[in-house]
Nucleic acid binder design. Structure first.
Lengths: 188, 188
DNA sequence: CGATTTGCCTACAGATCGTAGGCGATCGTA
DNA sequence: TACGATCGCCTACGATCTGTAGGCAAATCG
């Protein structure tokens, strides 16, 4: 009986693909076992169970988006940086819906530290350096921006924009315009 | 054997409580059956299954928040209306986390029409009437606002704000200030 | 008061989770 | 090359959940 060459990393990547193709709910021990051609019990020596599996997808997604975001922000500032960062998030949500959904899972506190989560906050903060938001309001601005980056794709993927004009792309551009203006003229 | 007096409405309400107390994942046929003191099979004559159950919680949550929002917006305009509407959403998310999570579920298209979903868009639009956002940008502004109303509580409940200062309440107020200013000075 | 309806039941088949323990492939060592 | 230890995936199992079929008794109606 040949060995399948499983390990936690390989499984996490396979789980991520599964999430994107069939939804995060499909990411289960038995579902993943089917996909990698192995018996469910075989997975338990590599991952702790379904919850663990999904958390690994979440960590993967956070890493991926952080890397993409770092790339997008590098060498840009102000409006350019804002748009680039925002598009990374929205594009990722649309291209990798399962991973993006996973990245919304609540991480156990001990995993947060080592995760890419804090890097996202840092990258958002970096975008703000192109504007002159007062330091005292920096966190508020980061959270507001983060809310839009999480909320817009969430509504978009949820189908909330499907039955009204104009299309989502148009209003997204307009919303980013508005955010740019807001950051430039942040109230004091 | 006494009858339990079950019906779809009673079950939906019990499921909503269950969601708030133990999380939306706990809303299952067997979980609900335990809670209402009945055998799982007994529920299938009232609801179609776990998915149906959760959708009913979602519809309930949309109705409840729409009613609260309508109340909050009534008789207010401009900044007052904005803050009142926003607080309804955030307060609901914190008080009823399970229901709020359910309201994020993707509804089958045929349910959307009869749901309170469109009413939420209408209420947000009503808030905008207190500002002079150009009609062509109204949808963009509605979606931007909606993104924050969805995104901020999402990050907040996800624990994203737990380990940084200042506290979430403070930055929320500041973010609403900023949105108010943005809507008042919407870029043309 | 008897007949029908209706609500919750028991029983069951299928699937999943997670654990225990086995067997053979692989690898280190001589 | 041969042998022994390790380790990876296996089978087997118990517990739980989903959803269906059919039964019995409580409620309702003539």
């Amino acid at each position: 009986m040949p060995r399948a060459g499983l390990n936690p990393e390989v499984l996490a990547r396979a789980a991520a693909e599964l999430a994107d193709e069939e939804g995060l709910e499909a990411v289960t021990v038995s579902g993943l076992a089917r996909r990698v051609g192995v018996r469910p019990a075989s997975l338990y020596s590599h991952v702790a169970g379904t919850t663990d599996l999904r958390l690994r997808v979440a960590l993967l997604a956070l890493e991926e988006t952080a890397a993409l975001a770092a790339d997008a922000v590098a060498g840009r500032s102000g409006r350019d940086a804002l748009v680039a960062l925002a598009d990374v998030h929205r594009d990722y949500a649309r291209a990798r819906p399962g991973c993006w959904a996973a990245s919304q899972l609540r991480l156990p506190a001990e995993l947060v530290v080592g995760s890419a989560g804090p890097r996202h906050a840092e990258l958002t903060r970096a975008v703000l350096r192109g504007y002159d938001v007062p330091p005292a309001d920096e966190v508020a601005a980061v959270r507001l921006l983060g809310s839009v980056l999480r909320g817009y794709p969430s509504l978009e993927l949820g189908g909330g924009f499907d039955h009204s004009e104009p299309d989502s792309e148009t209003t997204w551009r307009r919303a980013l315009d508005a955010l740019d203006v807001l950051l430039r003229a942040w109230p004091r």
